[in-house]
Design a protein around this nucleic acid. Sequence first.
DNA 1: GTTGGTAATGGGAATCACTACCAATAAGGG
DNA 2: CCCTTATTGGTAGTGATTCCCATTACCAAC
Lengths: 153, 153
Amino acid sequence: MRRHGQRHWGGEFKGCGYRMTKPRQAILDVLGETDEHLSAEDIYQAVYKFYPNIGMTTVYRNLELLVDMSLIVRFDFGHGRAKYELTDQYSEKGHHHHLVCKKCNKVIDYSDFMNDEVKFLKSTEKGLSEIYKFRITDHLIQFLGICEECSKK
Amino acid sequence: MRRHGQRHWGGEFKGCGYRMTKPRQAILDVLGETDEHLSAEDIYQAVYKFYPNIGMTTVYRNLELLVDMSLIVRFDFGHGRAKYELTDQYSEKGHHHHLVCKKCNKVIDYSDFMNDEVKFLKSTEKGLSEIYKFRITDHLIQFLGICEECSKK
DNA sequence: GTTGGTAATGGGAATCACTACCAATAAGGG
DNA sequence: CCCTTATTGGTAGTGATTCCCATTACCAAC
């Protein structure tokens, strides 16, 4: 059941006690073939089409595992359900952040002005980790507001 | 039942069709008297102590309303329950962001390095709103990692 | 003060995303 | 090919939040 666009993830599962299974491959495939921000339910639906045996429990369990393995990232936009994306390094999108519309909940990816961001992050992360003795591993940057369509209404 | 620390919010409720009620005053009081990040349940418990008639539904409904009125802010740290704070302008904390520990879920407020942030935000917000025709009203900045206590374990 | 209309309340039932449990199954190293 | 152990998928739960609706509080006009 090898399909187009499938990536080989064996290496990531070697030596850590975890196994590469059909559901895991399927979930990673689905996330690798989309630009959208998928919920667990979305992923279940998509996987179901070519692997109808999949169970919702398995989807949730594996999403958690893949987040722990840093292959995927989980976002809580506060819209009720969590959304998942491949980690920057495995995604065609690369490093990006989100513009979130408060009205329609649409999420727009952007990867502009990363130079300004890097400068800001570098100084701020260094300062914060010293003051609060906090080992910073990641950041979350989002801009909220009203998208073009919603501002016309 | 006027208690210490109570603030007068009448002005914010004038002319918008909403009324200032006991539950609303109570919820705002509770949020005004704490530095913590309170969940709906936390707020219910705190209000219950001096207003035992309060209902959970009322708490949720009013939290939503107060968020719409921009008197309070809702945060989804992804820990299962939403947390609420007074908006910067009404809070003693002023403008701040959060350090979130991935292990113990602790949330630390910080308001350092705001100069760097302002510079970054100014240029980035301007650029993004032009490119994406997006009216930016707010931003969310968070640093994730491991706090001092957790890094010792 | 009474009335009338709308906003707001509170209780329980319902929903929705997610998790725990467990017997059955399937990786994958030896 | 076998054996150990990770993994699966179904069902029953859990916990946060929302819906529904009859009752109540507020406020302005008479």
